[in-house]
Design a protein around this nucleic acid. Structure first.
Lengths: 138, 138
DNA sequence: GTAGAGTCTCCTCATGGCAGGAGAGTCAAG
DNA sequence: CTTGACTCTCCTGCCATGAGGAGACTCTAC
């Protein structure tokens, strides 16, 4: 027998202390729907369940893997629907690998161009009023 | 003999047309000091010299090489002081190469971590209420 | 009952490089 | 002289992820 309407739970400061995250961040996550509170105290204070800690760990982990909060929200939505989110997470992480590959490719290309320019760089070329920097031809 | 105080020059729309850049961008550049106008018309319209085109080419080129507008401003300040900016540009581009190297390094490391995770990924692992996604251990 | 800590909502700011629009003034052609 | 295109300044918004603070309220310990 559990008292009906009985809401226990951590206040935001306690969750901040235990998770190591700033109160501001927790409020922000709650606003985004990443971290639902189980309710409010009579005075309007957010109350969080123990599971919130696990949830924040999950969020932190996916953040370090480069997912956006929105993508993480998608994963959590699946979890909250009662399903295992592993499949969705796998998809998101796969996309992330592709994004990274694209970025590395762009960066390599840019690096190559820069190196090419710097390889033939003349610190003190003939002055040419038609261009600002002769090494760049512009 | 040139008439004193005589200011000719393009208006911003003409410069936009010839450079291919939006009027908004040109105004923004002028505000930042990247693209000085030679003056204003009686009605307050910005007037630009022919050299503005060359200057915009220079800006465009350095932008594609990944420099920020602020860094480009530094280069142009050297040029405007009457010196050849090649040395400064060389320094900036060298820094840019280092930045890129750092980014590539980070991206590779992240990619490696992602690949490691995905390599051992189980789409349908045993359910475990203690964690949201067993593959991540969180 | 009172002090002090905690929490609430709401607002602004930060980054970088502009885009969109309001409202007013200017310029060139007919 | 009028009309329509151009330009002016100033304000706001965008992208993401919060940080910082004001002013008001709540809770807890003494």
């Amino acid at each position: 027998m559990v008292a009906v309407g009985m809401k226990t739970g951590m206040k935001i400061g306690a969750l901040a202390g235990r998770s190591g995250l700033p109160v501001k961040t927790l409020r922000y996550y709650e606003d985004l729907g990443l971290l639902p509170a189980i309710g409010r105290s009579e005075g309007g204070y957010r109350l969080f369940a123990e599971e919130s800690l696990q949830r924040l760990e999950f969020i932190r982990r996916l953040k370090t893997l480069g997912l956006s909060l929105e993508e993480i929200l998608d994963c959590l939505a699946v979890h909250d629907a009662g399903e295992l989110p592993c499949g969705d997470i796998q998809v998101q992480l796969g996309r992330q690998v592709e994004r990274i590959d694209g970025q590395i490719k762009e960066l390599r290309q840019l690096r190559k161009e820069l190196q090419g320019l710097l390889a033939g760089w003349q610190s003190d070329p003939a002055k040419d009023d038609a261009v600002i920097c002769p090494n760049l031809h512009v």
